[in-house]
Amino acid sequence: MRGRVDDRLRKRRCWPVAARVLAASLAVSWAEAEAAADARKSAERDCEAAEPSATPTPEPNATPTDDAGAPATEPSTPAGETITAAPSGVEAPVPQSTAEALGRTPKRVKCLDESLVDEFGRTSARKGVQPRTFRKARRLAIGISGGVHAGDLLDTQWMGGADLAFWPTEEFGFEGVFRVTPMTLRLERAATNAVSMGNRYTDGVAPNLAYEAIGHLMFSPIHTKLRARKDRIVHGDFVLLAGAGAVLHRTVQAAAFDVGMSLYLFPRPWLSVRFDLIDQILAQEALGSRRISNNLVFSVGVGFWIPPGKRAKKR
């Protein structure tokens, strides 16, 4: 089905739509995946529930009996239907399985489900498809973050920044990030101080502040649930991100590229806490040494979502 849709879209040269369909099909949401798993498990359990009572397949004109051999005058059926034995002498279709003969092939086994009583005396109910407690689609997020910027060629320094993100769908989002970090080189200080010479690379934090403006494309294929304590569950997303931008500092040449991963936790419908690990790739030159640097950026941030109270709707 998906393939046919894709083909049709490709033939019509609707590449953006085709890509969207493919991405949406790949990024199966947690709820959909869980629903599929529940349905599969439910079916397996129902088979298990039915098969043990699999005394030999009853004759078409026989009355179903229980394990003790007593005739079950009103055998249970999940949907409230009763199994009526075929009148004698009438050709009835032979059931394919004992479960079918007993009428227990439907999705639920009522007697079992109703027998599951919790500690409060309530009967168990299947959760079924669970909506996401936090929706990103068509929402804006404003965030601030801070962390460590570990320079490949230069020093490790603190980093602070702000970001503005928009998520058109649950799976894809865009983000603009602005960061400030000092790009210092303290190694030279050891040498120049030893011989009372001046640094070629300016020392200090203030003169070495670098300003980064980078755009990210974000892809969120994994939804996760974390149990914080026995009574607390936090929902979250793993987000892959990649992007490009500019780093304004005298050691940086050309553009900078980011590749990384984030873990978003959603403690409130309007708040997210994120952990980012980003590999920042850029061309740098310091003291005549020029190379492609892989700087590692690790940061923790909070985001505020607009509109603030948007929650999932039951499907």
């Binding site: 529930a49 009572s53 229980d66 007593a70 009103e74 249970s76 007697c111």
Partner: peptide
């Protein structure tokens, strides 16, 4: 439910 011989029973007690 779940009681052999009663309406709604499906399996015997142990199996249930």
């Amino acid at each position: 439910v779940g009681v052999p011989g009663q309406p709604g029973e499906c399996v015997d007690k142990t199996l249930q």
